[in-house]
């Protein structure tokens, strides 16, 4: 309590009324995170922790077998085909993240800036960019499968009209293009959200600061790099961290478009898809479930994401403070 009190930063001591009342007020602030903690703890943390323990058991099929310590983790990294599948999927996740950073976040930043510049119809564009986010992933998957269909899909038809037949491809069936196609569809889906966050970040920059900087002669790139980007670091942090997490958790879109095997020939397999296959056995005939192995994979995935998120947050926070 004492340490807590002394650590309250930047809060002026309120005009003391009675000591007990002030104490109550100080206490009251600790109630703030309680509702979130309660719901989150009960419905997320508890089931996940329970499931983490599965990773320590020999658990093929439906019935839990013996306690085997860390053998599942060992199998994941040393046995065929688990080892190969893991690194294969892991690489795809890295590509996913990089691709999303460029295709989704890079473009979103430019678009947010364009809207921020108050072009005519800004309201329309904002809504248009966000529209895809309103769709369910099942629809997104189905629509894009239609568009990317090699024989009558819009993309190949358009390429044909411009005389670019040589570029026509079975986009989702060719291992060289399938992953890229999925990443671009995911960017299409998430673009509007990133625009909104960037825009909210830009718009919360106090106008006085911009005006002052303008008076000081800042413009163009200088304005961008010295004023706008530093001041919207929180928004950039949010988007980067989110993109990182979502890329390494990438599941639904791949599942909807390329199935539980990350087709073709595991070229779109991701760690989360691989996890799903292990833990639930994929769709019919895909195999029996290996919950022990699946849980081990989930634990590894979790550790990896949390360590890297922590590092990412640490450095980006530092940037935020430096501004």
């Amino acid at each position: 309590m004492n340490t807590a009190e002394s650590q309250v930063k930047a809060v002026n001591k309120p005009a003391a009324k009675t000591k007990t009342k002030r104490k109550w007020k100080r206490w009251a602030i600790h109630l703030f995170p309680i509702p979130a903690l309660a719901i989150y703890g009960l419905f997320i943390v508890y089931p996940i922790l329970a499931a983490f323990t599965y990773s320590l058991f020999d658990w093929d099929g439906l019935v839990r077998g013996a306690f085997i310590g860390l053998e599942n983790f060992q199998a994941l990294f040393s046995l065929e085909p688990y080892k190969e599948l893991f690194w294969n999927a892991f690489q795809h996740n890295i590509v996913y993240f990089t691709g999303q950073l460029i295709a989704q976040n890079g473009l979103a930043f430019i678009l947010a800036f364009i809207i921020y510049k108050k072009i005519k119809g800004a309201e329309f564009f904002k809504i248009a960019f966000f529209m895809p986010r309103l769709l369910s992933i099942i629809v997104v998957g189905f629509l894009w499968k239609l568009i990317l269909n090699p024989n009558f899909g819009a993309l190949n038809v358009i390429l044909g009209k411009f005389g670019l037949e040589s570029l026509q491809k079975a986009w989702l069936g060719d291992p060289d293009t399938a992953l890229t196609a999925i990443i671009l569809v995911n960017s299409w889906f998430g673009l509007g959200f990133a625009v909104l966050i960037f825009l909210a970040g830009m718009q919360s920059i106090p106008h006085e600061l911009i005006e002052a900087a303008t008076l000081d002669g800042a413009k163009g790139w200088k304005m961008m790099s010295k004023i706008i980007i530093p001041l919207m670091m929180p928004a950039i942090t949010i988007i980067t961290v989110l993109t990182f997490i979502q890329s390494f958790e990438a599941f639904e879109l791949v599942y909807a478009m390329q199935g539980s095997q990350g087709e073709p020939y595991h070229s779109t397999d991701t760690l989360a898809i691989y996890f799903y296959r292990l833990a639930f056995g994929g769709s019919s005939g895909g195999g029996s479930s290996a919950i022990g192995l699946g849980s081990a994979l989930a634990v590894v995935l979790f550790l990896f994401i949390s360590v890297f998120t922590a590092i990412l947050l640490y450095f980006m926070r530092k940037k935020e403070v430096e501004m």
Partner: peptide, 9 residues
């Protein structure tokens, strides 16, 4: 249709 991945898969 057994194993993980199954022989069928």
């Amino acid at each position: 249709a057994k194993g993980n991945p199954s022989t069928k898969a």
